[in-house]
Design a protein around this nucleic acid. Structure first.
Lengths: 289, 289
DNA sequence: GCGCTTTCTGTAGTTATGCTACTTTTTGAT
DNA sequence: ATCAAAAAGTAGCATAACTACAGAAAGCGC
C-alpha cells in the first residue's frame, strides 16, 4: 500500500487549522485564504496567492515552511490530496442554517472520507485471521445492537456467500442463549462501534468460554477485544455533532462485504455455481409480475 | 458547491487508464509511468517525469493536454486529488485468483466509487420533495426486502431524528397489512434497488390508493415509480459479477441519512434537545460496566 | 517504391514561477 | 528611548513550465 497516501500527516488542511493561531500575523492571513478556498488555492500561482492574502511572496513561502511543506509546490500537492481525502476536514458541522444542498454534500463527503479512512487503517492480517476463522466455521453468529444490529443482520443475510449457517439474534436474551450454545468450531462475531456495549461484550465472553472462535468488529480498541480472538478495528473519523449520522455502519458493512466475499472465494466450484443459480432465481422471482 | 471536487470527471487516474490505448506511442509511455507510480509523479518535476518516461518535455505536456489537463501543473493537482481517491475504477471483477489484499482494495474501491457516483447523480429537487413529505408526515413506514430490508430497518431506527413514528414491517404479510392501514398524512417509503420487487410495488400502490404519500428509493427508473409521489433514483454502477457485493445498500443508507437529517433539521429547538439528551443517555447506558 | 501529406516527436528558446539573499520595518524588552 | 530580535518586503536569480519550429516517422495515393 502506498504509504504517502494515508496517515494524518497527509491531512494538510487539518494541520493548517490546528496551527493557525500560532502562526505569524501575515502567515495567518495566508492560512485564512487557504482554509477559506482550498479549491482555488490549489490552482493558484504563488504570486496570486500572495496577492489574495495581501502579503508578499516570500511570506507565502515562509508560511509553507511553517506548516511543514517543502515549498509552494509541495503545498499545492499536499493541499490537493488533503482536499479530496478529507473534503470533510474543513467540514463544518451540519447546522440548522445549512440548506439541503449543503446537507447532502456534507453527509456524502463525511461518509466517503470515513470509508477512505477505514480503508487505510484496516489491518490486512487481522482480516486474514478473521477469514481463516470464518472459512472453517461450522456455524456463525453475529451480535450487534442498534446501528451495529443492522450490520449483524446484513452479515446474516450474506449467509449464501458464507456457505455456513449464520444467525443474528436481535435481542439481548436471544443473544445470551445463542452465545451459551456455541462451542468448538463455531464462531461469534460481535459488532459494536464503541466496543463498550455490555451485552455484546458479555455474549462474546460467553462464546469464547464455551470454546467458540470470536471476532470483534469495532471502531476502537476497547473492552470487547479482551474476548476476541481476532480484532477488526475499523477506525472512524469521530464526530459527535448533533446531526452527524452514524457513519460507522458503512465501514462495518464494507468489512462484512470483504469477509463474506473472501470466505466465499475459498469455497469450491460447486458452491460458486449454487450462488450463481441463487442469484438467477432471485432475479426471476423479483421480476415476475 | 465545488463542482470540480466531485463526480467521476475528477478521477484522473481512471481517465488515463481508459484513454491509454488511444494515446500516441510516446504519450502512452508517460501514461504508464503515471499509472505505475502516481505517488512519485505527483512530486516530480516536468523534466524528471520526461526522463522517467524516456521522452521529451513537450511530449509530457502534450500528454497532459491529451488527457484533459491544462498543463503539467494541472496534471499534478488533478493527480494528487485522484490519488487520494486512489481508485482507478478499473474494477476488474473479483476472481478466485485475487489475494486478500486485492479483494479488500476492490471492494472498498467499488463501494467508494459507487457512492461518488450516487452523489453526482442524486437529484436535489427530488430529495427536497421527499423531505417535504416526510417532514409533514404523521407516521412513516419503510418497505424493503433483503438488502433493501436492511435499509428500511435502518431508516426505522432513525425514528428519533425523524421525530415521527416509523415502522419497517419485515415480511410481506405485515407489509400489506401496514400499507392497507395507511391514509392521509401518512407516508410510505419503498426501497428496492431493482424497483421490480413485487411486494414492494404492491405495498406502495395500496398505500397510495389509501391516500398516503409515497416515496420510492431505487437504483433505476422502474415500475415501482408508477406508484410514487417522489422518486429518489440512486444510480449504481452496475456490476453483475459473481462475487460483487451489494453496493446499492450503502448509497441507499446515505440517502436515508440525508432524509432523516434534513427532516430533523426542520424540527424545533426542543426536538434537538431531546436528541442531544437521547444520545447522552444512550452513551451512558452503553458505557456502564 | 516514390513522393506527398499527415501525424509525431524532439531541440532550442521564451516566459514566468518559485525561491533566496539581503534590506527595511515592526515589535518588544530594558 | 534605544537596541536587539523577529517579521515582512524588495529585488534578483535559478529553474521549471511552456511554445515555436523543425526534423523524423508513419500513412496514402499513384
Amino acid at each position: 500500500m502506498d504509504h504517502a497516501a494515508n496517515g494524518l500527516d497527509d491531512n494538510l488542511l487539518e494541520t493548517v487549522l490546528r496551527q493557525k493561531d500560532e502562526l505569524r500575523k501575515s502567515d495567518r492571513r495566508v492560512a485564512e485564504v487557504v482554509l477559506a478556498a482550498p479549491g482555488e488555492v490549489v490552482s493558484m500561482t504563488l504570486a496570486q496567492l500572495a496577492k489574495a492574502a495581501g502579503v508578499s511572496e516570500p511570506t507565502v513561502i515562509r508560511f509553507c515552511a511553517a506548516i511543514g511543506c517543502e515549498g509552494f509546490r509541495d503545498l499545492r500537492v499536499k493541499l490537493a490530496r488533503s482536499m479530496a481525502f478529507a473534503r470533510t476536514t474543513s467540514h463544518t458541522a451540519i447546522t440548522s442554517e445549512d440548506d439541503l444542498g449543503a446537507v447532502m454534500t456534507k453527509i456524502f463527503d463525511y461518509n466517503l472520507s470515513n470509508l477512505n479512512w477505514a480503508q487505510s487503517k484496516l489491518d490486512q492480517e487481522a482480516v486474514r485471521a478473521a477469514v481463516d476463522l470464518l472459512a472453517g466455521a461450522r456455524r456463525i453468529e453475529f451480535f450487534g445492537f442498534g446501528a451495529s444490529g443492522i450490520v449483524a443482520r446484513d452479515a446474516q443475510q450474506k449467509f449464501p456467500l458464507f456457505g455456513t449457517p449464520c444467525g443474528a439474534p436481535a435481542d439481548a436474551h436471544q443473544m445470551y442463549m445463542t452465545a451459551e450454545m456455541l462451542g468448538d468450531g463455531d464462531v461469534a462475531v460481535g459488532v459494536s462501534n464503541t466496543g463498550h456495549t455490555r451485552e455484546i461484550v458479555t455474549a462474546l465472553q460467553v462464546a469464547q468460554e464455551n470454546g467458540a472462535g470470536t471476532i470483534g468488529i469495532t471502531g476502537q480498541p476497547s473492552p470487547m477485544l479482551d474476548h476476541c480472538d481476532v480484532a477488526l478495528v475499523v477506525e472512524t473519523l469521530e464526530n459527535t455533532d448533533l446531526f452527524t449520522p452514524t457513519v460507522s455502519r458503512l465501514s462495518h458493512l464494507v468489512v462484512i462485504d470483504i469477509l463474506s466475499t473472501a470466505v466465499s472465494l475459498r469455497r469450491d466450484e460447486a458452491h460458486h455455481q449454487r450462488i450463481t443459480q441463487m442469484k438467477a432465481r432471485l432475479a426471476q422471482r423479483r421480476g415476475s409480475p
